[in-house]
């Protein structure tokens, strides 16, 4: 604890410099006082806001802000031939980009490993939860199906992009309408109606709740960008609107009760706030 004596004596050491040089010690001192650097309590979430339909050129879109983390997502629908093995199923292609503009950690160029891993997690969560049955995207078996490109971009990175991106993608899908399409077998072309549009038949509306474990004991809900690299363990619980567990992901050492504790904390959050997230989109 040479650190403590050093900071104790030099009073002019700026808090910001201390945060930069000793991020772990900085966070430890906050946690000791039962508060986090941004003023939240350990289990407190940041404010969430969801706007839909802000991109008029997309079939559906959503802008999600979770504290300072901002993710925008647009859904673009195209028509393609289905896979030979699955002639009645369309395609759902979720993807997220972490461009250099969203934070100093990210560099311009091809998608970083972090972005690819995040995309894969989002895709597997949306597929495993069965948000949209792919058979609903069929226009004509073996000839024409819808391809939905669900593209999300992080505009401002302040931690917990997974939760924000999942909400953005599901809200954008909820906002998506597809024109009524008919396939003409004689001409082999698909015609879309100009007037009739239908919303997607979504089967469940998942919300992810991410927690981090700091120092082996303290569970922090909704970790911010400063806290994320200091966490030993990250836990994501995905629940549907009824509170049923859809998926649980965890990486790093966790005790047996930590997982169940996070599941109940996620359910509590769902009870108090979660149901409102998609409710206004009805």
């Amino acid at each position: 604890m040479a650190l403590q004596t050093q900071t104790g004596t030099s009073t002019d050491l700026n808090a910001q410099i201390f945060q930069r040089l000793h991020p772990r010690a900085y966070l430890e001192r906050f946690i000791k006082e039962d508060i986090r650097p941004d003023g939240r309590e350990a289990t407190e979430w940041r404010d969430l806001s969801v706007h839909v339909g802000s991109i008029s050129t997309a079939n559906g879109s959503a802008l999600v802000r979770l504290g300072d983390t901002t993710v925008i997502c647009g859904v673009k629908a195209e028509i393609a031939e289905p896979d030979l093995e699955r002639p009645k199923e369309g395609f759902l292609v979720p993807n997220i980009d972490l461009p250099a503009l969203c934070g100093p950690r990210f560099k311009p160029g091809p998608p970083s490993e972090e972005a690819q891993v995040l995309s894969d997690r989002l895709a597997s969560t949306i597929t495993a939860a069965g948000v949209l049955p792919l058979s609903a995207l069929c226009i004509h078996p073996e000839r024409a199906v819808w391809v939905l490109y669900v593209d999300a971009t992080c505009i401002n990175y302040d931690g917990n992009v997974f939760d924000a991106a999942l909400i953005a993608m599901v809200a954008a899908l909820k906002n998506t309408t597809l024109p009524t399409a008919t396939f003409n077998e004689e001409t082999g072309r698909t015609m879309c109606s100009r007037k009739l549009r239908k919303p997607l038949p979504l089967e469940c509306l998942p919300v992810s709740y991410t927690f981090g474990v700091f120092d082996g004991t303290t569970v922090l809900a909704d970790p911010a960008a400063f806290e994320e690299p200091l966490l030993d363990t990250s836990i994501s619980i995905v629940l549907d609107e009824g509170g049923a567990l859809l998926s649980a992901g965890q990486l790093g050492i966790a005790d047996k009760d930590t997982m169940s504790m996070c599941v109940s904390a996620a359910k509590e959050r769902l009870e108090t706030y979660g149901r409102e997230i998609y409710a206004f989109l009805e």
Binding site: I235, S247, A248, Q250, I253
Partner: peptide
């Protein structure tokens, strides 16, 4: 033994808390 990785997905969720613990 301490848990280091969980990767659990359920298609039709039930709100049964014990399911994840039993799988674990």
């Amino acid at each position: 033994a301490r848990l280091v990785w969980t990767n659990w997905h359920v298609k039709d969720g039930t709100s049964d808390d014990g399911e994840l613990a039993r799988a674990q």
